[in-house]
């Protein structure tokens, strides 16, 4: 699963730490999501989408092998 988290973070001038604090997880979790090593739960994906005012589908996209 690919995501546009890093781009969105840059657009909104947010650090990983700041985004992590906003959604109530650790910075490592945000880093893992950005690198595609961890797929967040639905509730976390929704929280992140609220921060960036985007739909979950815009932030996270399925890849062919998903």
């Amino acid at each position: 699963m690919k995501n546009t988290l890093k781009i969105q973070r840059a657009i909104h001038s947010l650090t990983q730490e700041e985004l992590a604090n906003k959604v109530g997880v650790s910075r490592q979790t945000i880093n893992s999501i950005e690198k595609g090593k961890y797929i967040p739960s639905t509730s976390l994906a929704l929280k992140i989408s609220l921060v960036f005012c985007q739909s979950v589908n815009e932030l996270f996209q399925l890849e062919e092998n998903d």
Partner: peptide
């Protein structure tokens, strides 16, 4: 120190 859904998994 910081328990979240990733550490739970």
């Amino acid at each position: 120190k910081q328990e979240d859904e990733l550490t739970i998994q």
